[in-house]
Design a protein around this nucleic acid. Structure first.
Length: 884
RNA sequence: GCGGGCGUGGCGGAAUUGGCAGACGCAGCGGAUUUAAAAUCCGCUUCUGGAGUCCAGAGUGUCGGUUCGAACCCGACCGCCCGCACCA
């Protein structure tokens, strides 16, 4: 293949090429400045008529102070989409901002005495500088932080509109309470049931709080998932399960003896068909009847207190060992005369779901089975699995939860589960003991936070007038600057003056709401604000109507439920309060995987950063590690998500210093499919760096010999045509890969193409010294541009010296269909499904020709010799299979 | 515990979505160039067995099924990851 050049000649060229090095450290800032100077990525709030808009958005970062590899990955993915769509002729809006409220700023304030605002804005400045070094095609003129009063003031206006529209209400809910610190704790601040700072056992506490009425939209939020055809199926499934529509029944059980005025307990069940298999009734510890029991019995009170120590997280509740307390109360069975069951308080019954009470049917529910087994309650099967004998069927290891025939159940006997549900609901409704209902798992969204660093909720509490909205003319309700973090609790609450205001309605002394908003509220509408970030109203109609929905949203899978669901709700709320005209904010969604790395631990147990470790490879392939510059052994840990605590992080800034932004971007795209977790590897980055240099050398070395720009490559023959075919196939393949987010495949195709060009260059045949060669080099430059934008500009300036155009402004290359067609194709030939050979046939060969050629192939002929052919299978373009 | 996902060589992965498993890259080995090194270029690289570049067998977490044919579809199991409503 390479015989045209002698080894010596090749070596000489190689040496000459080695001199050609891409100086990324100089080139990258230069091109960034050039994009900036030309305002390449700035777009107007209202696009000009006829412009085909495309809105690319990555989930905005929390300003922790440093960007991490997860950011680099997410923003690189988004930037490839933005640059590609721009090349395809779209007017692309690609903004950036900061999710700037939240707990870490308050933690910094408490630990280091820095004001949360100072800490946050300093972090933003540092991260903005780092992001700018990545060469992202962002419209920085749209930047804002959610902690800017200009932003949260508009959010307060939205809150008031929601309040007026009946989308906000005040009700009581349980929070994690640290009795020592006197503070509400986030779930992540509860460790093994104790406060993370005080170590005191956490208690549940009932507080009056603000809620957004997301449940009003539950049916619509569920149904509209069906229209989100560019969302991952798994995300839609997770949301559907979270919303949790279930059909069932509410059943009222009469207490055999009324207590404290209560005469019945209402339960929700999705399995009314199993009513005859009931053996107990269980209520949540927060259920009103439990309080009645506690008042009568100190042991019940003690049990409820124990349940309160479990915290509020659903995971903690469901994973805890099932425990219960028999209240001594009894309820009557709705259909069985004289039959009654005990009422237990159970730690696995959730007050938030259904009615906070269930009837226990151990035979056909796993949790009830576990509970009944533990406390010796009866386990009566009422659903008979298909084929089982009713006389002998027994439940010995676990509940039976599948379909079957109802038995042991009076008037339901012989029915299927579905029929029995219908029949029992009819009877309950007829006798007034219950109703068929649709129940939702989704709960209203509690947005109150007893914290300083958040958006103040703009209402005033007046003893005479009740809850009074702050007049819009007085917005924003600004956070006070002078706050004291030396005391536990909410600084807004114990600020000397801030909360004392006059009632806007009656003028008498009143009290400002001191709760601030959940930071999920901030991120539930920022995508809309980006369309007109300086507007004097939350959004401007012309801008949001033109730009929304977001065409491609990109972020971590960890946001699959909450953030995305809240944003979908908020968009509906904004629609119903006249700010927007659409319901779904994100037309396309892509969820990327995490960035992971091995962790390293020294003998003394301390975690080590990757750069502190020396890895060595034994001849047998086993890897071992020592501390760099010493001999102390290091344990190589699991590959896991990068985290500060395990020190398995790689600093993007250091990578960009060493290899440049293009290399970092290229590696992060090339390693694996973007939806999967990726493992950061130093060797992989080095490989990406080598490739960027190789591309530079290849173009730079060829430029002096290329024909002038614009020379037609049409009509090329022989090797030149082969090169053109490779070029156009690569254009088609890379385009297809970018369209489907298969960026790693796009990279592989570009690698392959570079190999092909390299072979053609080495062949040094006259045919290559022509327009086909220029076409190939220009194509690879433009195909790589969304991924390595700085290098592409550099190469383009070599290929088209003196030209004014930037790659960033060029249209995407088009593949010529004529050059994509193949004349022959290779078919695999199997005998009995095993590969025995391949044949080369013309693309238009008929079946008889194909079978003849297949049977004639040496190895195939040997395999079928002497065996009668029973069946011949030919899938055109794919395969031939002989069944003998 | 519940809901969702993933699992392919030494490593990351590819596979036209049921049709040649391992493209491309990393690591490794061998060679060229070099006084030497770096850099660069070329070649080999799933495993086992036999042989000159070929042949046979096995092989996509494990076990079973459907099919002419399974990484892909179905069932069971194992392992890892994400979420569980006050982290963002």
């Amino acid at each position: 293949m390479n015989d045209a050049a002698s080894p010596a000649a090749r070596a000489a060229t190689a040496a000459a090429r080695a001199e050609l090095r891409h100086d990324f450290a100089a080139a990258e800032p230069r091109w960034q400045a050039e994009w900036d100077r030309r305002g390449c990525f700035a777009v107007p709030d209202v696009p000009p008529a006829g412009a085909e808009k495309y809105y690319v958005l990555e989930m905005f970062p929390y300003p922790s102070g440093k960007i991490h590899m997860g950011h680099v990955r997410c923003y690189t993915l988004g930037d490839v989409v933005a640059r590609y769509k721009r090349a395809r002729g779209h007017l692309v809006m690609h903004p950036m901002g900061w999710d700037a409220f939240g707990l870490p700023a308050e933690n910094a304030a408490r630990e280091r005495g820095i004001h949360p605002g100072t800490w946050t804005y300093d972090n933003i400045a540092a991260m903005r500088a780092e992001l700018k070094r990545m060469g992202l095609s962002l419209d920085w003129s749209r930047e804002f932080a959610t902690c800017d009063p200009e932003y949260y003031g508009q959010q307060q206006a939205l809150f008031l509109d929601f309040l007026r529209a009946g989308l906000v209400e005040r009700k009581e809910s349980w929070v994690n309470w640290d009795p020592v610190d006197g503070t509400v704790l986030a779930n992540e601040q509860v460790i093994d049931g104790r406060g993370w700072r005080s170590g005191a056992p956490v208690e549940k506490k009932l507080l009056s709080q603000w809620f957004f009425s997301i449940t009003k939209y539950a049916p619509d939020l569920l149904e509209a998932l069906g229209g989100l055809d560019r969302w991952p199926e798994r995300v839609k499934l997770m949301q559907a399960n979270w919303i949790g529509r279930s059909e069932g029944a509410r059943v009222r059980f009469r207490l055999t003896e009324p207590v404290e005025g209560a005469s019945e307990v209402e339960v929700f069940t999705t399995r009314p068909d199993t009513l005859f298999g009931m053996s107990f009734l269980a209520i949540a510890a927060e259920h009103p009847l439990a309080a009645v029991a506690a008042a009568k019995n100190p042991d019940a009170a003690e049990f409820i207190a124990e349940c309160r120590r479990m915290g509020t997280s659903e995971a903690a509740i469901e994973q805890a060992e099932k425990r219960g307390f028999d209240t001594g109360f009894r309820v009557a069975h709705p259909f069985l005369e004289g039959v009654s069951f005990p009422v237990w308080i159970a730690n696995f019954v959730l007050m938030e779901y259904g009615t906070g009470a269930i009837f226990g049917c151990p035979g056909h529910d796993e949790r009830d089975y576990e509970f009944a087994s533990k406390y010796g309650l009866e386990i009566l099967p009422v659903v008979l699995p298909p084929g089982a004998d009713p006389a002998t069927f027994a439940l010995t290891d676990g509940a039976y939860v599948d379909d079957g025939t109802i038995f042991n159940s009076g008037f339901l006997d012989g029915l299927s589960v579905a029929d029995a549900k219908r029949r029992v609901i009819d009877r309950l409704e007829a006798t007034g003991q219950g109703t068929g209902v649709v129940n939702w798992r989704l709960r209203d969204w509690g947005v109150s936070r007893q914290r300083y660093w958040g958006c103040p909720i703009p209402v005033i509490h007046c003893e005479a007038c009740g809850v009074v909205p702050v007049p819009k003319s007085e917005l924003p309700v600004r956070l006070p600057e002078d706050v004291d973090f030396s005391r536990p609790g909410n600084p807004l609450d114990h600020h000397p003056t801030w909360k004392h205001v006059d009632c806007p309605s009656c003028g008498r002394p009143a009290r400002r709401e001191t709760d601030t908003c959940d930071t999920f509220v901030d991120s539930s509408w920022y995508f809309a604000r980006f369309c007109s970030p300086r507007a004097e109203e939350p959004v401007t109609g012309a801008a949001v109507d033109a730009w929304l929905p977001v065409d491609q949203y990109i972020g971590g899978i960890e946001h699959a439920i909450l953030h995305l669901l809240y944003s979908r709700f908020f968009t509906r709320g904004m629609r119903d309060t006249g700010h927007l005209t659409l319901a779904e904010p994100f037309a396309g969604l892509f969820t990327q995987g995490m960035v992971t790395h091995e962790s390293y631990r020294a003998a003394d147990g301390r975690w080590l950063y990757p750069e502190e470790v020396e890895i060595s490879l034994a001849p047998d392939g086993t890897r071992s590690a020592t501390v760099k510059g010493g001999n102390q052994p290091v344990t190589i840990g699991r590959v896991e998500s990068m985290s500060k605590s395990k020190r398995n992080t790689v600093d993007p800034g250091a990578i960009i210093d060493r290899y440049g932004a293009d290399t970092a971007r290229w590696f992060i795209l090339s390693d694996n499919p973007p939806e999967r977790d990726m493992e950061w590897s130093e060797a992989g980055v080095a490989g990406a760096f080598r490739f960027s240099q190789r591309l530079y050398r290849m173009v730079a070395a060829a430029v002096p010999d290329l024909p002038p720009a614009g020379t037609s490559a049409a009509g090329a023959e022989g090797a030149a045509r082969k090169l053109r075919q490779a070029t156009h196939r690569t254009v088609a393949a890379v385009t297809e890969a970018l369209e489907t987010f298969a960026f790693n495949v796009a990279v592989a195709r570009i690698h392959e193409f570079a190999n092909t060009i390299g072979e053609a260059e080495a062949a040094a045949a006259a045919e290559h010294r022509g327009a086909a060669r220029r076409e190939a080099l220009e194509a690879i430059t433009r195909l790589a541009a969304p991924m390595m934008p700085h290098l592409a500009e550099e190469l383009w300036s070599l290929l088209r010296p003196g030209g004014a155009a930037l790659v960033a402004d060029l249209p995407w290359p088009e593949a010529d269909p004529d050059l994509l067609r193949a004349e022959t194709l290779t078919l695999a030939v199997q005998v009995l499904g095993k590969l025995r050979g391949t044949i080369e046939v013309p693309v238009d060969a008929d079946e008889a020709t194909v079978f003849a050629a297949a049977a004639a192939e040496d190895n195939v002929a040997r395999s079928i010799a002497g065996r009668p052919i029973r069946k011949r299978i030919h899938v055109p373009g794919r395969i031939v299979n002989f069944v003998v």
